[in-house]
Simulated scan of single mutants.
Amino acid sequence: MSILEVKNVKKIYTTRFGGNQVEALRNVNFSVEPREYVAIMGESGSGKTTLLNILAALDKPTEGKVYLKGNDLSKIKEKEMAAFRRQNLGFVFQDFNLLDTFSIQDNIFLPLVLSGKKYEEMQKRILPVAQKLGIQEILQKFPYEVSGGQKQRAAVARALITKPQLILADEPTGALDSKASDELLNLFTTINQDGQTILMVTHSVKAASTANRVLFIKDGEVFHQLYRGNLTNEQMYQRISDTLTVLIAGGEELE
């Protein structure tokens, strides 16, 4: 059974002034299987962020359905949605979204606190996650005391600690230097190999080249997709670059 199913999703916005309608997404269809690592790419304005917001149940499609583990997101009541997100989704953002007045440990604990978990359970969960991500030494520090790469590792730990069905990552390397980006991407590969399903929206060809499948969005539709197969990261990088060249040129020469 697919973890995520997106069926005929359309999103239309009405502009505040003039009442013009903008079609951000049209007829989007795809699914994500357990243990997959999928990247979504496209130019600015292609609909990537709109799609991510719908998948995160932060926005609703005008038409179509999104199913997470068989649950129709449109059928979940508003008062139950926050709890559903906490139980099923982990989020990694470009700007980390850490609270400066909380220690790194307390930032990681936050979704568990909101879920009503006991402190003993939180302590039990954080140790293996912190060890895996190499952040044991900074747990008592505050976000302003650590590097960007360490902040993003803390954000990944916060996403993992709830044991989510799916991690949604929005431009996770966008605020990192090249060394920290490489470390984060290696980390994503490792946690995916450990069984975590990941869906990442990115502008970065390098980031997308670590995924096992890349979906390309153009004008609100899934225009093309690439499967890794036996390709190396370098070969995947080249295939993605070639695809983006055709995408930007507006051609239809993709197989």
Score class of each variant (00 low, 15 high):
Gly90Ala: 07
Val201Tyr: 03
Thr202Ser: 03
Arg158Met: 06
Val9Gln: 00
Asp182Gly: 13
Arg213Cys: 13
Ala83Phe: 11
Leu68Glu: 03
Arg213Trp: 10
Ile191Cys: 07
Ser115Met: 15
Ser2Gly: 09
Ile40Cys: 05
Glu183Ser: 14
His224Val: 10
Glu80Trp: 02
Asp219Phe: 02
Asn192Cys: 11
Ile54Ser: 02
Ala82His: 03
Ser74Ile: 05
Ser74Asn: 10
Leu176Met: 12
Ile240Asp: 14
Thr202Gly: 05
Leu114Asp: 13
Val113Met: 15
Tyr37Cys: 02
Gln150Ser: 11
His224Gln: 13
Ala249Val: 03
Phe91Tyr: 12
Gln87Asp: 13
Ile217Thr: 02
Leu127Lys: 15
Gly70His: 07
Gln150Pro: 10
Gly250Asn: 05
Gln94Ala: 12
Val28Leu: 01
Leu73Ile: 07
Val222Lys: 02
Glu221Lys: 08
Thr189Arg: 13
Thr202Arg: 00
Leu231Ala: 15
Arg228Phe: 07
Met236Gln: 10
Ser2Pro: 15
Arg158Leu: 05
Asn20Cys: 00
Glu63Met: 01
His224Gly: 09
Gly70Gln: 06
Leu4Val: 10
Ser31Glu: 10
Ile167Arg: 00
Gly195Arg: 09
Ser209Leu: 05
Gly229Asp: 13
Val28His: 00
Ser147Trp: 04
Lys218Asn: 13
Lys7Met: 04
Ala157Ile: 03
Val113Gly: 09
Ser178Asp: 13
Val156Phe: 01
Val6Asp: 03
Arg26Ser: 09
Leu98Cys: 12
Pro128Thr: 06
Thr49Trp: 01
Arg239Trp: 12
Thr232Met: 07
Ala155Val: 04
Asp95Cys: 10
Ile198Leu: 15
Ser241Trp: 15
Glu221Trp: 02
Leu127Ser: 12
Phe91Asp: 08
Val28Trp: 00
Lys77His: 07
Phe93Met: 09
Phe84Asp: 08
Leu133Ala: 11
Lys7Val: 08
Ile161Asn: 01
Val214Lys: 00
Gly149Ile: 01
Ala82Val: 08
Gly64Asn: 06
Val222Ser: 06
Glu234Lys: 13
Thr162Asn: 09
Ala249Asp: 10
Leu199Asp: 05
Leu25Ile: 00
Glu252Thr: 11
Lys69Glu: 12
Val222Asn: 04
Met41Glu: 00
Ala157Gln: 04
Ala83Asn: 11
Leu231Cys: 14
Asn107His: 06
Tyr227Lys: 14
Asn97Ser: 13
Gly19Arg: 00
Gly134Val: 11
Leu55Gly: 01
Ser147Val: 07
Asn29Met: 03
Ile76Ser: 00
Val201Thr: 05
Asn230Ile: 11
Leu99Lys: 07
Lys141Ser: 14
Ala155Trp: 01
Glu23Leu: 04
Ala207Trp: 01
Ser209Trp: 01
Asp194Cys: 09
Leu55Met: 04
Arg239Leu: 14
His224Trp: 15
Thr162Gln: 05
Arg213Gln: 14
Leu55Ile: 06
Leu68Cys: 02
Gln238Ser: 12
Gly195Cys: 10
Asn29Pro: 03
Thr62Ser: 09
Ile40Asp: 04
Ala180Phe: 04
Gly229Glu: 14
Val38Glu: 03
Glu121Tyr: 09
Leu254Met: 14
Ile138Ala: 09
Asp182Thr: 14
Ile191Asn: 04
Ile138Leu: 09
Ala39Arg: 00
Asp95Ile: 11
Glu120Asp: 15
Arg125Ile: 08
Leu73Val: 04
Ile240Phe: 12
Met81Lys: 06
Leu25Val: 00
Ile126Pro: 03
Gln136Met: 15
Lys163Ile: 04
Lys179Ser: 11
Gln235Phe: 06
Tyr119Asp: 14
